[in-house]
């Protein structure tokens, strides 16, 4: 029971991060390897505002989200748009965007080390104990989970019920056909990329309330988010949420029963299973 709840709590936050990446990859078609660094940047901001100004991390979100949106929008327009224009096909764009965002991730790590130093950072926020089904959990974890769930639900509803969400899903399914029905694909890709970045940064701010981060941990989160996106299916929010919960559970299981140092190995084991049996994602349809 303890494992299940801890796993679900972890998975809830993963879901938020992976949805961010999925918006960037599924809609804007940019495989963003700097995603984890955006997360850490969000975490740093929450940390700095909490220790510096005493601002609650849950309020910081409202600052982090628009800021990250603006930054990611600029990144897309300045850095990635030229690559999209230059690429003759999707494969070439993937290669270019992987290399470019990879460079970007190094630059961001470098800047964060420069600005904050390479040390681990954490802070005590709501570190009280609450009881759920007889087991004790940190209140900050529970709050973070609720926060992530609320955001996931809001995004899910917005994507499925609003007009803007429908347009975004149309671009995810087929950018070429979306253009034919009058959707401004370049503008929408930029918005989806920016939104994805904002969601990820918020995820980082939420995560920083209970996890210890440092400037170079970003890549681990990128890795996990990528595995989740592939497991859940590209462009599929429902699949992403389920996959995130599975990964959260799997990791907690391995960390509790075998060794906490093996979490990435656990993620890899899931990844291999998916690649071997369902490469199209949990809910994806096999392509002809």
């Amino acid at each position: 029971m303890d494992i299940i709840i801890t796993g679900l709590i972890l998975g809830g936050t993963y879901a938020l991060i992976a949805i961010g990446l999925n918006l960037q990859y599924g809609v804007a078609r940019i495989m963003n390897l700097a995603n984890g660094e955006m997360l850490v940047a969000g975490g740093y901001t929450a940390f700095a505002l909490y220790t510096g100004a005493g601002l609650s991390p849950l309020l910081t979100i409202f600052l982090v989200a628009p800021a990250a949106f603006a930054v990611n929008w600029a990144i897309y327009r300045v850095m990635l748009r030229p690559l999209v224009k230059r690429a003759p096909n999707r494969g070439a764009l993937e290669q270019d965007s992987i290399l470019a965002t990879f460079g970007l991730s190094f630059v961001m790590v470098g800047l964060m080390v420069w600005a904050f130093g390479g040390d681990y950072f954490n802070y005590a926020y709501l570190s009280r104990r609450v009881e759920i089904f007889g087991d004790g959990f940190g209140l900050n974890r529970v709050v973070a989970f609720l926060c992530a769930t609320a955001l996931c639900a809001a995004l899910f509803i917005w994507m499925n019920l609003s007009r803007a969400g429908m347009v975004i899903r149309a671009v995810a399914v087929s950018p070429d056909s979306a253009r034919l029905v009058g959707i401004d694909v370049p503008r929408l890709s930029a918005i989806a990329f920016a939104l994805g970045g904002a969601v990820t940064a918020v995820g980082g701010a939420v995560l920083s309330t209970y996890l210890t981060l440092d400037a170079s941990t970003g890549v681990i989160f990128t890795m996990k988010a990528l595995i989740i996106v592939i497991m859940g299916g590209v462009g599929d929010i429902r699949g992403t949420i389920v996959a995130a919960l599975i990964l959260g559970l799997g990791e907690t299981l391995v960390a509790t029963l075998i060794d906490p140092g093996l979490t990435l190995a656990a993620a890899y084991a899931l990844f291999i299973l998916i690649l071997l049996f369902r490469p199209q994602g949990l809910f994806g349809r096999r392509q002809a």
Binding site: G103, V107, M108, V113
Partner: peptide, 9 residues
């Protein structure tokens, strides 16, 4: 790290 990233870009 920063300089490596700039080289990449």
């Amino acid at each position: 790290t920063l300089l490596l990233g700039l080289c990449f870009l």
